[in-house]
Design a protein around this nucleic acid. Structure first.
Length: 376
DNA sequence: AATACGTGGAC
DNA sequence: TGTCCAAGTAT
């Protein structure tokens, strides 16, 4: 452990800190659906969902997911298509593919019991250092650190730690501190209370130090630097890309859609056929027509652009120009699958393509409305 | 170590 | 409108 942390720990009253924090948590903790019990499976699902995702966003997904897949067995035996559909719109879709793979391993190799040892638990797909510690502590009451963004922010303020929390190696510093200060009597509530404090009081932009239950233990507050911490280096800007997409239909109102590869961006999700436009923007219609012919063997008459849908990822931006088209020969659609407008609801799409579908539906509704004005 | 991987909300 | 996220993991 580095010297400046050792120094801070000497004057840190661990027992009183635990008492103050846990008392506050008892009174103020939010009533969240994954806090009903300590079922390791439900704790696991909630921790995966909560990765890089806000509590308010997760709540409805958690209810639906647990209702649909209430147990390890249920999730292990479910179709991947159905599982992805339950995750639709949550983002970071590899999380749920890894979760199901790991749950299947637990089901088959560990009699359906979520492992309670760091090595075995950490060997499961999608279970990294944070999630491992969260499950061990929250579900099994084992005093392991669960260091996420909240904990790094809170602890960096408590001990005035100026290391850059965006750097991977910084996490070790925080884990060492947690090992020293974690409650051995109640590691479950201790870890959760630290995260809860970060979510409610010790927030990034304007921490509510005046009502903080552990204000008197906080080095950053004492020094008046709580707004300067934590140090977090910035990430680079997303790279913009021009995409053209086609809502391809036939005379029977079927859609022709494409399944994305099993790895990489939006893995295993469905999409409308689309291509990155690298050429001259004046010839995008021709580029798109050629690409559709080459990639899928599709010939069609392309509409004008019906709209543009921006989609911002963390590392890139799609500007999706949307076209409509009817297939000329529906037997010639290699690599696309045909679904009717009822069936299409069973397939999981990224949000950008849900918006494309909505654009198409709105356009149709308007069209019908114009042709058939309502009667008096 | 640095980058890929989603989305919607807050300021 | 732009910027920064929010209970991270895999490669």
């Amino acid at each position: 452990m580095v010297d400046y942390v050792k120094e801070k720990l000497k004057t840190f009253n661990i027992y009183e800190f635990q008492q103050d924090l846990l008392d506050w948590y008892d009174k103020e903790k939010r009533d969240l659906p994954w806090r009903q019990d300590q079922d390791p499976y439900k704790v696991w699902v909630s921790e995966i969902m909560l990765q890089q995702t806000r509590v308010d966003t997760v709540i409805p997904y958690f209810h639906h997911f647990i209702e649909k897949f209430p147990t390890i067995k249920a999730l292990a035996e479910a179709e991947e298509e159905e599982v992805l559909k339950a995750w639709e719109g949550l983002g970071y879709y590899s999380r749920v593919r890894n979760l199901q793979a790991a749950v299947r391993e637990v089901h088959e190799s560990y009699s359906g019991i979520v492992p309670d040892t760091p090595d075995t638990l950490g060997s499961l797909k999608g279970v990294g250092p944070y999630t491992k510690g969260a499950i061990l502590s929250i579900a099994y009451n084992i005093p392991e650190p669960a260091v996420d963004g909240n904990v790094m922010r809170v602890v960096s303020r408590l001990f005035s730690i100026w290391d850059d929390i965006a750097k991977p190696k910084s996490r070790k510093i925080f884990e060492e501190i947690i090992y020293k200060i974690i409650s051995k009597e109640n590691p479950s509530d201790f870890n959760q209370s630290l995260m809860e404090l970060g979510a409610i009081i010790c927030t990034p932009a304007s921490p509510a130090c005046l009502i903080c239950p552990v204000q008197e233990h906080c080095s950053a507050f004492e020094e008046g630097v709580e707004r300067e911490l934590p140090v977090k280096s910035k990430k680079k800007k997303p790279l913009p890309k021009q995409i053209s997409a086609v809502v391809l239909t036939d005379d029977e109102d079927n859609y022709y859609i494409h399944k994305r590869p099993a790895s990489g961006l939006l893995a295993n999700l469905w999409e409308f056929p689309n291509f990155e436009m690298l050429g001259d923007f004046r010839s995008y219609r021709e580029l798109l027509t050629e690409a559709m012919k080459e990639e899928y063997g599709v010939t069609m008459e392309l509409s004008d652009i019906k709209g543009t849908i921006p989609h911002v990822f963390s590392h890139l931006i799609w500007n999706i120009s949307v076209y409509f088209a009817k297939v000329e020969d529906s037997s010639n659609t290699k690599g696309l699958i045909k679904v009717n407008k009822t069936e299409i609801q069973r397939y999981a799409f990224p949000v950008s393509h849900q918006k494309i579908m909505q654009l198409y539906k709105d356009n149709q509704a308007c069209h019908q409305g114009c042709q058939a004005p309502k009667q008096e």
